[in-house]
């Protein structure tokens, strides 16, 4: 198991995740603005504003700058005839093996943002688990979906 899976997900995922981080940031920003208004109106202690500002800054640094990069760097996958091999996680690194014969069906899904970036998420279901590879290139995801579903000879009812 020393060898890591070779494939990486699309580099465009980075931009996408930064946008997600940005959306999260703007929601927090709105809440903070509300807080500041409330502080002024009802003369709450000033440190609430300070804490909110600090949290905002940390959120921006972590979720827009650091996390997407780390996440992208860690995400690797490899699909062979026998297995699907995944590796992901920033603090908790998970390495998962799914034998091809266990795969029951494969789906690709695409939200509006993903569509804009021509990306697609593929989810692989077994009888007990679902595994997702996020933000693959659209065509790559489609190719993968077809190859997995043709490779996965769905086992009979013994699951």
């Amino acid at each position: 198991m020393e060898r890591q899976p070779v494939q990486r997900i699309s580099k465009r995922a980075l931009t996408l995740w930064r946008i997600y981080g940005g959306i999260q940031f703007s929601i927090l920003l709105l809440i903070s603005i509300g807080l500041v208004v409330a502080t002024v109106l009802w003369e709450w202690p000033w440190w609430i504003t300070a804490v909110a500002a600090a949290l905002l800054l940390i959120d921006a640094v972590v979720f827009i700058w650091i996390v997407p990069g780390l996440r992208w760097k860690r995400w690797r996958y490899e699909v062979t005839e026998q297995d699907i091999d995944l590796q992901y996680g920033i603090f908790i690194i998970t390495r998962t093996l799914v034998p091809m014969v266990r795969v029951q069906h494969v789906d690709t899904e695409q939200g509006p943002l993903l569509r804009k970036f021509k990306l697609s998420t593929i989810s692989i279901s077994t009888a007990a688990t679902i595994h997702k590879i996020p933000a693959l290139d659209e065509r790559e995801a489609e190719r993968l979906r077809q190859s997995i579903s043709s490779l996965a000879r769905v086992a009979e009812d013994d699951v």
């Binding site: 603090f91 690194i93 998970t94 390495r95 093996l97 009888a127 007990a128 688990t129």
Partner: peptide, 24 residues
């Protein structure tokens, strides 16, 4: 159905890891 090795960064430093196997 699937097998995973799971490792936090702390565990990685100590060459430790957890293992998880899933059945239906």
């Amino acid at each position: 159905q699937a097998a995973s090795g799971i490792q936090t960064l702390f565990q990685k430093r100590a060459d430790l890891s957890s293992v998880k196997l899933t059945l239906t």
